[in-house]
Simulated assay, not measured.
Amino acid sequence: MASTFSFDIVSDFDRQELVNAVDQVIRDIKGRYDLKDTETTVELVEESINVSTDSEFTLDSVHTILREKAAKRNLSQKIFDFGKVESASGNRVRQEIKLKKGISQEIAKQISKLIRDEFKKVQASIQGDAVRVSAKSKDDLQVVMQRLKQEDYPAALQFTNYR
Rank of each mutant, 00 (worst) to 15 (best):
F57H: 14
R163W: 00
S89H: 09
Q150W: 02
N20Y: 08
S76H: 05
K109S: 15
R32K: 14
K113L: 11
T64A: 14
A124Y: 09
E56T: 09
I103K: 07
K72F: 04
F57S: 15
K69M: 09
S87I: 06
V133R: 07
T40C: 06
G102A: 04
V22M: 09
Q158N: 12
N161C: 00
L75Y: 08
D140V: 03
Q105T: 02
F57V: 10
D81V: 06
V51N: 10
A130I: 04
I9K: 05
V10Y: 05
T4Y: 00
V131W: 11
L59D: 08
V93P: 15
K109H: 06
L44Q: 11
T41G: 04
D60T: 04
L59K: 10
D140G: 03
V10P: 04
V143P: 02
S52F: 01
D81H: 09
R67M: 07
Q77Y: 03
I49H: 09
D140L: 03
T58G: 01
K113E: 15
K78P: 07
Q123G: 03
L141R: 10
V42M: 07
E47P: 00
Y33K: 14
A71C: 01
I111S: 06
R94I: 01
R73N: 13
A2F: 00
D139Y: 10
R147L: 07
A108W: 08
I107W: 07
T58I: 01
A21M: 02
V10W: 04
A156R: 06
F80W: 12
S3R: 12
I111P: 11
S89K: 14
D54Y: 02
L99E: 05
V22C: 10
Q110W: 01
Q127D: 11
D81G: 06
R132E: 12
G102Y: 12
V42D: 14
S52D: 11
T53W: 09
V42G: 05
V51S: 08
V25G: 10
D60P: 00
D37N: 13
F57T: 08
D140W: 02
F7V: 07
R94S: 13
T53N: 05
N91G: 12
R132A: 02
V10L: 04
M1Q: 00
Q127F: 03
I79Y: 04
N91V: 01
D8V: 00
G31V: 00
D129C: 01
A124Q: 09
N20C: 00
Y162G: 09
Q77A: 13
L75W: 07
H63G: 05
G128Y: 05
F82L: 14
A70W: 06
E17F: 02
I103E: 08
D117Q: 12
A108T: 06
S3V: 02
Q123F: 03
K36E: 11
D8K: 15
I9T: 11
S137G: 02
Q142L: 13
R15C: 04
I49C: 04
K98M: 03
L66C: 07
S3D: 13
S112F: 03
I97R: 08
A108Q: 12
S137H: 04
F5W: 11
K72G: 05
S76D: 12
E43V: 15
S52A: 08
K98H: 13
N161W: 03
I126Q: 10
S52P: 00
N161E: 14
A155Q: 15
D129R: 10
